[in-house]
Simulated assay, not measured.
Amino acid sequence: MKYFSFFLLTILFTQTVWAQEGITVCGSSDAENTELFASLADDPTFRGKHDLVKYTHENARGEEITFATPDGQQGTAYYLEAKEESNQYLLVIHEWWGLNSHIKREADKLHKDLDNVHVMALDIYDGKVATTRELAQKYMQSVSTDRANAIINGAIGHAGENAEIATIGWCFGGGWSLQSTILANEQAIGCVMYYGMPVQDMAQIKEIETDVLGIFAEYDGYITPQVVEEFEQKMKEADKKITVHMYEADHGFANPSGSRYDEDAARDAYDKTLAFLKERL
């Protein structure tokens, strides 16, 4: 833990120096945010907070679809169509394991509970699903910000210019849920982020065009209450609406397969998530 604290402070100090010198990282602040979160996986304590999902997803109700991405490639998603004609979409972003059975099951559940919404669980890893912590670390740290943005923009394009888009994600996907909302711009109608890295760059925060629901854990040693408080304050300074719920739990508390699963907190967080989304979808 001491090593990680020194490592993180080094990153933050370096970024401050670069900012003073006018140097950018990968050309954009969203890249900095992505890489800062990915760097957490270098710490064995952070990796140890993630337990591999132990169950499989049976009787899946969705299907795999492909869509064009702006970089000339194809993106994939686990897709559940709305029961009736609808222009409302929920983009679901996976944890650091990838688009696995757990996330597909969550997509099924959200699709059922939201009644008449298109649900797209995006594959940010382009087909790779981790079976070990080491692979999860490798896949998360190999994500290109440009490619992830292309996948998300491709999904937004697939939904169409008249679509109303909400987003949700956990951990790695929590941060990308917020980035997806920024990319959706005026089409965004709601963002839910579970213990993901918040944006701290005010220029990006000002681009958020919808309400944000933040679900965080008090005992998360990485996305700490202090990090969340800073994000919440900046959102308010930018006149953006944010609701934060801080649970007496640890990182990953909503994943039922993990050793840090907190049933009461997870149920309450899901109820709040569903109420938030139903109000907007």
Rank of each mutant, 00 (worst) to 15 (best):
L12S: 00
L12N: 00
F13C: 11
F13N: 01
Q15K: 02
W18M: 05
W18C: 06
W18D: 01
A19N: 08
G22T: 06
I23K: 12
T24S: 15
T24F: 02
T24C: 04
C26E: 15
G27K: 08
S28A: 13
S28T: 13
S29Q: 13
S29R: 12
A31P: 03
A31F: 04
A31L: 01
A31V: 07
E32D: 05
T34I: 09
T34D: 07
T34K: 06
E35L: 15
L36D: 02
A38Y: 02
S39M: 12
L40I: 01
L40T: 02
L40W: 10
A41H: 08
A41R: 08
D42Y: 14
D43N: 15
D43V: 01
P44R: 05
P44L: 05
R47H: 00
K49W: 02
H50E: 00
D51W: 03
D51Y: 01
D51P: 01
L52H: 11
L52V: 11
V53R: 04
K54F: 03
Y55C: 00
T56F: 06
H57A: 14
N59P: 00
A60I: 05
A60W: 04
A60Q: 14
G62M: 10
E63T: 13
E64Q: 13
E64C: 04
I65T: 06
I65L: 08
I65M: 10
T66D: 11
T69D: 06
P70E: 09
P70M: 09
P70W: 08
D71F: 06
G72D: 08
G75M: 07
G75S: 05
G75Y: 07
T76L: 03
A77H: 09
A77Y: 10
Y78F: 15
Y78A: 10
Y78S: 12
Y78I: 11
Y79F: 15
L80A: 09
E81H: 13
E81P: 05
A82L: 12
A82K: 10
E85D: 14
E85I: 07
S86N: 13
S86L: 12
N87R: 14
N87A: 13
Q88N: 15
Y89L: 07
Y89I: 06
L90C: 05
L90S: 03
V92N: 02
V92W: 01
H94S: 04
W96K: 03
W96I: 13
G98M: 07
G98N: 06
L99M: 05
S101K: 06
H102C: 06
H102F: 15
I103R: 05
R105A: 09
A107R: 08
A107Q: 09
D108Y: 09
D108P: 07
K109G: 00
L110V: 00
L110I: 02
K112P: 00
D113H: 00
D113Q: 11
L114I: 06
L114N: 08
L114P: 07
L114G: 07
D115R: 12
N116W: 11
N116H: 10
N116L: 09
V117D: 08
M120Q: 03
M120H: 04
M120G: 03
A121S: 07
A121Q: 04
L122Y: 02
D123F: 02
D123W: 03
I124M: 15
Y125I: 02
Y125N: 07
Y125L: 03
D126V: 03
G127T: 09
K128C: 02
V129I: 15
A130C: 10
T131W: 02
T132V: 07
T132K: 08
